[in-house]
Each structure stands twice: as structure tokens, then as C-alpha cells.
């Protein structure tokens, strides 16, 4: 029976990963599609391939952070992880319904913390790990913004003799293939690892893995496959809005934004820090707009990111807390 429950919760975790790919693919391919470098269908195949290939490049440090640094391992159980996932998924659906930009990553952390607290109180929270995640919730969009802006200025400085912007943009159309690939690699690395972390925690909690075990290969492959399939099947449906939602991007700006966000994701993934890929690329796009002038940025979208910072973890925390109480009552 317990093995059956473990399989069910793993399936829910992979479903969460699939939806993440489905929803976030637009971030990495919007500019390639809006500038017609690739057709939507080719672009999602491109992004999905690099989402999957991320497992070859990055280790499992983010997964280890999710599994070991959010709550103490002894409190983790199938019920806690199930309630944590349900809280994160419901929060994502509620915010999707109300059109609020949310972060699946923050929802996952809030969800696991809420379910664990419902089981054993606030003492089970690991303040050091949560503080690290909390600090980078604020820092990652700011780093993305600075990187997007600096890269834009750098590109214009290097090519300042080329006064024909149209010709410069034509040259950068192919550059977008590389920057979109880099961002998809970073997205696959950071986001798939969060699911890997949840499955690893579940395997440890149910006695299917030792407490100091590294992530099994089948977990790595299934998490990257789920996010890649999500990208492949859903990304193109919502791709249209992202390229012009925050600021109107040209190929030069697209390369700067995607490269800036990719550098931020590479660095945080290598350091084992889970961050929101959506907030990172949003920051980088704002940075590209700010390189021209502040009025080129639609600040309403940036303001909604700040609201997402404030609301997501407490919201997912509360739902998971309640879900665990219900699960505990029924068990």
C-alpha cells in the first residue's frame, strides 16, 4: 500500500513539473517566435531539447536544497509531501484563475513548509535554508535586471559604430537561438531539480533511499523528461504575450534578456539555490527596457511580481497546512 502511495505522489510531482514546463516555456521562446527566427512549433522543440539536456550539465544541488534545507528530514512523510504538492498546485491554479503571476518554485517551498508545520510545529523549519531561498527570491530578479541592462549597454557599446539598428537586429536574430537555448538549459536545470528534490525527499521519507543518498538517475531523467514534455506540448499556446508584455523586444534585446537570465540561472543552479525562472527573465526584460528609458517598461507587470513575492509562500503555506490537517484526519 505504501509503495502504491509513493508512486501516486511521484506521479503528482511529475505532473507539477509537466505543468511548469507547459506554463514557463513561453519565457524562453517568446522572443525567438515574435521576431520570427523560428516558428512556434520549432521553437518549442528547441526549448524542450535544452530543458531535457540540462541534466547533463548541472548536478543536483538545487534538488538537495529542496530535499534537505527547507524542513528537517525526520518530519517528512508521504502525507507531508502530498499535502505540500497539493498546496503548491492549488495555489498555482488559484493565482492562474485571478491572473496573478506566481512562482511554482516559491509555491513548492511554501507548500512543503506549511504541511511540515501542520504536522510538527514551527520548530521543523530550517531557518538557514529558508533564509537563503527568501533572499534569492528578492535578489534573482534584481540580478536578472542588472544583467539584462548591462548586456544591452555592452552590446550597443561594442556595436556602436553600426548605426543601422535594423542591420544589427538582423545579425542578432541567429544569436537568439543560442540565448534561448541557454535560458532553456537554465530553466530545465533549476526547475526540474525542484521536482527531483521533492521525489528524493519522498524516497528518503518512505525508506526507499538512504538519508544521505544522491538523486537516483531515474529521478533525474523522469523530472527532465516531464518538464521537456510540458514545454513541447503547451509552450506555444501562451507564447504570444510574453515577447511584448513587459517591454517591446527587438532581437538585440531578446539576446540580452535571455543571456542575462541564463547567467543568473546557471550561477544559482550551480550554487544549489532554487529561484523563480519567471521572475528572473521578467527582471532581465525590465533591464533591457530600462536601458532605453524607464517609461519603456510596463511597471504594472513588475509590480505584480513584487505582489507574487509577498503572497506566494504564505498562500501555499496556508493551503498545504489545511490539506495536511484533512489528510491527517482521513488517515
Amino acid at each position: 500500500m505504501e509503495t502504491f502511495l509513493v508512486i501516486i505522489v511521484i506521479a503528482i510531482a511529475l505532473g507539477f513539473d509537466y505543468v511548469n514546463g507547459f506554463h514557463d516555456a513561453a519565457n524562453s521562446i517568446a522572443t525567438v517566435v515574435s521576431t520570427r527566427v523560428l516558428t512556434p512549433r520549432t521553437a518549442v522543440v528547441w526549448a524542450a531539447f535544452f530543458n531535457f539536456a540540462a541534466f547533463l550539465v548541472f548536478g543536483d544541488k538545487v534538488a538537495t536544497t529542496i530535499a534537505n534545507d527547507v524542513v528537517v528530514q525526520s518530519v517528512l512523510s508521504i502525507g507531508v509531501i502530498f499535502a505540500g504538492l497539493v498546496g503548491a498546485i492549488l495555489w498555482d491554479l488559484i493565482t492562474f484563475w485571478f491572473g496573478l503571476p506566481t512562482s511554482s518554485s516559491h509555491a513548492l517551498v511554501g507548500g512543503i513548509a506549511g504541511a511540515a508545520v501542520a504536522k510538527a510545529g514551527f520548530d521543523v523549519l530550517i531557518s538557514e535554508g529558508l533564509r537563503k531561498i527568501g533572499i534569492f527570491i528578492v535578489l534573482s530578479p534584481l540580478i536578472g535586471l542588472a544583467m539584462g541592462l548591462i548586456l544591452t549597454l555592452g552590446i550597443f557599446w561594442v556595436f556602436h559604430r553600426n548605426r543601422n539598428l535594423q542591420r544589427l537586429n538582423r545579425g542578432f536574430r541567429t544569436g537568439q537561438l543560442a540565448s534561448a537555448a541557454a535560458f532553456s538549459l537554465g530553466h530545465g536545470a533549476n526547475d526540474a531539480q525542484k521536482t527531483m528534490g521533492i521525489i528524493l525527499a519522498l524516497l528518503i521519507a518512505s525508506g526507499h533511499a538512504a538519508s544521505n543518498a544522491s538523486t537516483p538517475l531515474w529521478v533525474v531523467l523522469s523530472a527532465h523528461t516531464a518538464i521537456a514534455l510540458g514545454t513541447l506540448t503547451g509552450g506555444w499556446r501562451i507564447v504570444k504575450t510574453m515577447g511584448s508584455k513587459i517591454t517591446r523586444l527587438q532581437p538585440v534585446g531578446g539576446v540580452a534578456a535571455e543571456s542575462g537570465a541564463a547567467i543568473t540561472l546557471f550561477a544559482t543552479s550551480a550554487a544549489g539555490i532554487p529561484v523563480s525562472t519567471t521572475h528572473t527573465i521578467t527582471g532581465a526584460i525590465v533591464g533591457v527596457g530600462a536601458a532605453r528609458r524607464l517609461s519603456a517598461v510596463r511597471w504594472g507587470v513588475a509590480g505584480r511580481v513584487v505582489w507574487a513575492w509577498i503572497l506566494t509562500i504564505p498562500g501555499a503555506f496556508a493551503i498545504s497546512w489545511l490539506t495536511f490537517l484533512v489528510v491527517d484526519l482521513l488517515a
Binding site: 538557514e128 533564509r131 537563503k132 533572499i135 535578489l139 540580478i143 542588472a146
Partner: peptide, 17 residues
């Protein structure tokens, strides 16, 4: 003050801004 081992990141990003 709350960044612990990552204080250098906050300081560097702040200095860049």
C-alpha cells in the same frame, strides 16, 4: 545582515546598482 554566507552577493549586486 540576513544574508549569512551570501552577504557578498547582496553587497556586489547593491554596488552594481
Amino acid at each position: 545582515p540576513v544574508s549569512d554566507g551570501y552577504a557578498w552577493v547582496s553587497i556586489t549586486v547593491g554596488a552594481v546598482y
